[in-house]
Structure formats: structure tokens, C-alpha cells
Design a protein around this nucleic acid. Structure first.
Lengths: 295, 295
DNA sequence: TGCTTCCATCGGCGTCGGCGATACTGCCCG
DNA sequence: CGGGCAGTATCGCCGACGCCGATGGAAGCA
């Protein structure tokens, strides 16, 4: 009987489902099934009754749930207590991010971490690098963690968990004339584009979209600042694909969602597989925890 | 932070030493060192101050010790509680033993198990088989556990822990004439021996002793019962190597300890490496636990 | 009956915990 | 004061276990 088994068991009991319990703990369903199975086998009795598509706690499960909460809670408590002894986890955690973190409320989470763990120094390095450069920097230790679009290629020793979505939407001035139907790339070929410099991840994605459609477009202006790009759009100098997040709540700009896979990416939190320092683990947990409320 | 780490930590703290803590938990000292090291690393602070040959708890260690006791205790409690739900671990555990278990108080332990775990049925199969036959029977599942002399050869997937000692001593009638010095095999060549049938483990060991010494002896009587052998010895029909345990407290027989490796074996508790049923694990723990008080 | 949803199982793989051997370091004693 | 000694840390190796991804099978729903 190990603490992690108890944590898993509690998750399943709370969620009333192996599948949802697994999601909550960010592990595979089969992992959950096996873990609870091992626990049941070790204790020599069932913890859940499997009734068709429903599960319910057995008497033994109910007792264990109550006690397990206390045990796991006590473990968390002593951990916090020890953390507070030397001012909590300390050290500096370096987080690499793409310029926009999409639906992920990065500022909120970082603020919460600062408040709860004053000992942890946070270095956030926001850069327009493509995701693979971020992965390199994780591998070589420059970054402890990175918030990046989901890579197509998996890299050994680096794991990533989804924490939000990264959508590009088409932003334009309010009076831009557009056909009253689903937009295709070809419809945009004649309009001047405002976009980011070559090499930026977002630029690459938009280029990819048009390349796949076989349409040439006119990038009239290149700017290295998303906010500036939006200002230019508002001024009517052109249209631009920008992170959806930046356009939310702005009524001085018209936005159109283009449904294309190239534009809709998942934001993931990447890290080295192996165990990191307490500070890194703390930040990682905090970022992941917030993700649960997002997805 | 896992329960087992806490158990290890408590053992080290209680014993005031990594080495003794490791002995208490029946693991290697290096294992202890690494386990506590991992715990310290995860918590981000030292739990022990290493002062030369002494260790003492740090402040953090003191706090953790207190809490860890509660946590581990709670885990044990809920386990017992769940056990009692269905009458405790149940099923039948089959224990193979050699005829004499030497210093190991087998009857006491089995009695205690019966009392504390009424649901466990115990089958004890005492046989004169050599240890390797016992190992075979463990491998094929006939025996769950076996108390046997320490095998010279290690068998894959079977592990063994020492639980006592198995000494053969030389038993003779009170009036047997003997030289007043350290006995050697040659001194015994002229005396008639009472011994067990060929194939019995104890017979093999004695044969081995004389073979190594290059001395031929005279086995006048072979009996298949240790008690009978002792009776014959008392009656003056010969001398015999018998398990020390059988001679303790008897004043009608003279015993001489021969210091030879072949005669002094360690009694081990053998089992399959992999996890067994709760009943088997319970019995195993009980047997091991008593060992600690013996060694 | 076909489809979906959920849990269990299986094979493969990586990591971790275990052991044994060895290095290192104070301690004690001759 | 130097060498053995006792205790801990480290290293290499290996087996086992946990995790994942894919598949199977059963229950619910239309």
C-alpha cells in the first residue's frame, strides 16, 4: 500500500469513474485500472463494485476512502510544514513560453505561485522560437519547463501535458468587406496581410495554411509585436492572424474564426521526464493544476 | 514521498543508525542510504545530521518522524480494519520445513498466527528433504514458504532471509570416554555412529564433514526419527550428530559442540520473490518478525 | 443489431529500487 | 601516529514494477 495508490484510489472514488479519475491524475485509464487493481489485490478485497457502466464503493472501499483522505492529507500537511521550515521550495525556475499562451491564464498562475511559494524565483522567458528550439532548451537544462504548441514529434526524455489551446483567429478592421460565407484562403489572397517575422511560430503556421491551400498571399507588413500588429489591423492597414486571446474583449476589431487544423493547436507544458528539484516540481504541479480547470 | 520511504526513515531514526535500520527492515544498508537520500532530496532538506559515526535528527527530521509515525500507523490501522471486515486474510498457507528448525521457535510463531489470524489455515509439511527439493516445491507452488538450511546455490525468483541457526552437535552417553582436547573427526572414527537415513539433510551434512576430513566412520544404526536417535544415544549404543535444539535442557546426554562450517548452518525462510496472497504475506511477515528477536 | 462508453487485459518499454562491491571518512587503539 | 574498524555514500548491474498504447469485452442506448 503506497501513498500514490491511495491518491489514485481517492481520485477514482471522487470522480466515480476510472476514466475521469485518470484524467484528474493525468495518467492513462489503464494505469488507473491496474493501480486500483493492485490495491484491491493487496488488501484482499474489492474496493469498487463494477455495475455495468457505473462503479460504487464497497463497504471496504468506503472505509478506506475515509482513512485514505486522512493519510494523504497528513502527508500533504507534513510536506507543507517541512516546506515552510526553510521558506518552502527555493531556487529559480526558468519557464520558456511562446509569446501567447492562448487560453492558459499564465499571469494568474504565476501570481499564485509567487504568493504561495515566496522562496521560488520565477524566470519567464517568452520568445518567438519554434517549439523544437524550446525542446532543445529543456533538454540542455536552459529551461526547466516550457509552454509551447504541441510538437508533432515526440522527443525522448521529454514529456508534455496539454494545458490549453492556442488558436489563431483572423483579425481585421470593422469595415473590412468580406463574402458572407465560409471563408477560404483564396478569399483573402487580395487583402494585405500584417504578420510576424519569418521564423516566428505563428508566422510559420499561417504560411503553412496558405501553402497547403496553394494560395499566395501578400504580407505587406511584418512586425515583431503582436499588440502592434493588432493596432495596425485596427487602423485598417491590413488583416492578420493573431492569437485568439489577444482579441477577446476588443470591440474595435472584427475577428473571424477559420477552422483549419494548422491554426488550432494545443498548448502543452513540456518538461524532462525525470524528477526535478522540489521548486520545479512545485511550479509544474501548479501549472498542471490550473490546466484541469481549463480543459 | 511514499509509505515505504517513511517506514525506512522511521527505522533509521528509531535505531539511530542506517545499518541497524536496514537490518530491522531486512534490506541492505545501501538501500537504506539511498531511500533516505531520495526522501531528503524530494523534501529538499536533510533529515539527519551525519556526525562522524553518529547520526542525529535535524529539526525537519524530528517533525517528519512524528508525523510519519502517525501516517504509517494510520495506514497499518486501516489495513487491520479492512482485514477484520472479512475475517482477516484467509486461505491456506503451506509451509515446508526441515525436521528441526533449530533456534527458531516455530511452534510459538504458528500459535501466534493462529490466534491473530483465525482466517488463515496453516499446513506445515515437515520433511527430511534436502533444501533443493524444498526450493523446487516453492517454485512449483506446492509450498508457499519454506524453512530450510541456507542453500549454497541461489535460485532465480526465490529469495531467502535468515531467521535462525541450525547447529548439529555431537550427542553421546554421559560416560563416553573422550580425549580432553578439541575434537577432530579422527577422534571419532572408532565410535559407532547413530545417524539418519541417506538423503536426509542432516545425514548429508555429517557425511560431508567426515568426507572433508578424509576420515571413515562407522554408522552402526540408521533411524528415521531424531527422538529415537537420542534415545539410542542415551542408551549407549553410539554417538550421533543431532540438532542442538533437541539436546537443550537434557541432562541425561552429553553434548559436544564441534566447530565446523558443515555443521553450523543458517536457517532461512524461503519464498518466491514476487508478491503473494495477503495470507502468505501475513505469515511471512510474522515469521520474519520473530526472526528479528532471534538473531 | 450496431454504436458508444467504460473497464480490464496484454505486450513492450523505461525507470526505479534492490543488491553487492567499493570508496570514503571519522574513530579508536596499539 | 598510523593502521584497522565501523558506518555511510556511491557505482554498476539487474530484475521488477508502473506506465502507456492498443485491444478485448461487456453494458447501455438507439
Amino acid at each position: 500500500m503506497e501513498l500514490q495508490q491511495l491518491v489514485y484510489f481517492i481520485a477514482v472514488a471522487d470522480e466515480g469513474s476510472f476514466t475521469r479519475g485518470a484524467q484528474r491524475e493525468h495518467v492513462d485509464q489503464s494505469t488507473m485500472s491496474a493501480a486500483v487493481g493492485r490495491l484491491e489485490h493487496e488488501l484482499g478485497q474489492s474496493l469498487f463494485r463494477r455495475i455495468g457502466h457505473r462503479i460504487e464503493l464497497t463497504a471496504a472501499g468506503g472505509i478506506l476512502l475515509e482513512r485514505a483522505r486522512a493519510i494523504v492529507g497528513a502527508a500533504r500537511d507534513v510536506r507543507r510544514e517541512l516546506d515552510s521550515l526553510d521558506g518552502g521550495p527555493h531556487g529559480t525556475v526558468t519557464l520558456g513560453t511562446v509569446l501567447s499562451t492562448g487560453t492558459f491564464p499564465l499571469a494568474d498562475v504565476l501570481g499564485a505561485i509567487r504568493r504561495e511559494h515566496p522562496g521560488i524565483g520565477l524566470r519567464v522567458q517568452s520568445s518567438p522560437l519554434a517549439f523544437d528550439r524550446h525542446l532543445d532548451r529543456i533538454a540542455d537544462g536552459t529551461f526547466d519547463l516550457a509552454l509551447i504548441p504541441e510538437p508533432d514529434t515526440t522527443v525522448a526524455s521529454i514529456s508534455a501535458s496539454p494545458v490549453g489551446t492556442l488558436d489563431l483567429v483572423l483579425a481585421m478592421a470593422l469595415d473590412t468587406p468580406l463574402p458572407d460565407r465560409l471563408l477560404r484562403c483564396a478569399d483573402l489572397a487580395d487583402l494585405p496581410f500584417i504578420d510576424f517575422p519569418a521564423g516566428w511560430a505563428n508566422r510559420t503556421r499561417t504560411d503553412q495554411l496558405f501553402a497547403e491551400a496553394g494560395v499566395e498571399r501578400d504580407v505587406a507588413i511584418e512586425v515583431a509585436d503582436p499588440a502592434m500588429a493588432l493596432d495596425l489591423v485596427r487602423g485598417g492597414l491590413g488583416i492578420a492572424f493573431v492569437p485568439r486571446r489577444l482579441t477577446e474583449g476588443r470591440h474595435d476589431i472584427r475577428t473571424v474564426v477559420i477552422d483549419a487544423p494548422a491554426l488550432s493547436r494545443v498548448l502543452v507544458l513540456a518538461r524532462l521526464d525525470r524528477k526535478q528539484s522540489p521548486a520545479v516540481e512545485t511550479v509544474h504541479q501548479a501549472l498542471l493544476g490550473r490546466a484541469a480547470t481549463v480543459n
